[in-house]
């Protein structure tokens, strides 16, 4: 090929790829979700949308920070409305939930409960379901685990399985072998922080199925010897519901050190004398 041809072809390629970059930058993936939300809002609640905002289709990148934990959550960029009482009837991903009003997002952010990757603004990454992020979204009933990080008191309506898990833990005498909160024997590993373990930190044996923490915990409870045939842990012959409840409780034992200000008043530890609180 002559240099003239190479010159022409690569100039075209350079131009095309530069345009491609600009187009990509101008069309972040969250635009369509904001557009969908604004369309819904205009149609469903026209009277609550001020005239000046009638034409608005995007609200731009949104983020809320939890300073004490140096978190920055951009989930509301794609999930506007989750804390907006106008959106009680919106499609699920935009819908207002009472629990979001009980925990204002300016103070709690999103990932403290839901997990996922707060800084990300693209789908698999934000939901923590792309490679190299150890905290995927807690889906379905597993979300109840989130509450246990802060609420020591029972939440019978919102987190019944968490409460059940806590009770099973005491009923089956898990502390005969595991230490937790400084109490219990140490035949098995200390359970502080098990809820933050990454899949690579677990023994999977030759198992080739999907690898996530909830899957491991659930299967390990149903049969402690699925992954390691010689595990000394007692097989309690748990049914699905019990195993799920225990899994949720385990998931609530995260490594996060919640700042006092984020703990509910009833679950705060007594103030230390030195603090002079």
């Amino acid at each position: 090929m002559s240099f003239q041809k190479v010159f022409i072809l690569s100039s075209i390629a350079l131009l095309a790829i530069s345009v491609a970059w600009v187009v990509r930058e101008l069309n972040p993936p969250w635009l369509r979700y904001q557009e969908a939300y604004h369309d819904w809002l205009r149609a469903a609640a026209p009277e609550t949308t001020p005239a000046s905002l009638q034409a608005q289709r995007f609200s731009g990148l949104q983020q809320v920070g939890v300073q004490a934990l140096r978190r920055l959550d951009r989930c509301t960029t794609c999930h506007p409305g989750v804390a907006d009482p106008r959106a009680k009837e919106a499609p699920p991903m935009f819908r207002f939930r009472p629990v979001h009003a009980q925990h204002p997002m300016e103070k709690f952010g999103c990932t403290l409960c839901h997990r996922g990757q707060g800084r990300a603004t693209e789908v698999p990454e934000a939901h923590g379901e792309a490679p190299f992020w150890d905290e995927p979204l807690l889906r379905g009933v597993y979300l109840q685990a989130a509450c246990g990080q802060c609420h020591r008191e029972p939440l019978p309506t919102q987190a019944p399985l968490l409460e059940e898990g806590r009770q099973l833990f005491e009923v089956y005498g898990c502390r005969n072998c595991h230490r937790l909160d400084g109490r219990g024997r140490q035949v098995g590993p200390d359970l502080a922080g098990v809820g933050s373990k990454a899949p690579e930190d677990l023994m999977w044996g030759d198992d080739t199925g999907p690898r996530t923490l909830p899957i491991w915990l659930l299967r390990h409870f149903k049969d402690p010897r699925t992954f390691q045939p010689n595990s000394p842990m007692t097989d309690f012959r748990l049914n699905d519901a019990q195993a799920t409840a225990l899994t949720i409780y385990m998931l609530s034992l995260t490594k996060l050190e919640m700042p006092r200000a984020l703990l509910p008043s009833r679950s705060r530890p007594a103030p230390q004398p030195e603090e002079g609180a």
């Binding site: 240099f3 190479v6 010159f7 690569s10 100039s11 390629a13 350079l14 790829i17 530069s18 491609a20 970059w21 990509r24």
Partner: peptide, 19 residues
């Protein structure tokens, strides 16, 4: 001209790989 051509080709390739 040749140097310029090589530079443009290399830049285009780099941008494509980065994309």
């Amino acid at each position: 001209f040749k140097e310029f051509t090589v530079a443009i080709a290399a830049l285009a390739l780099l941008l494509i790989i980065s994309f």
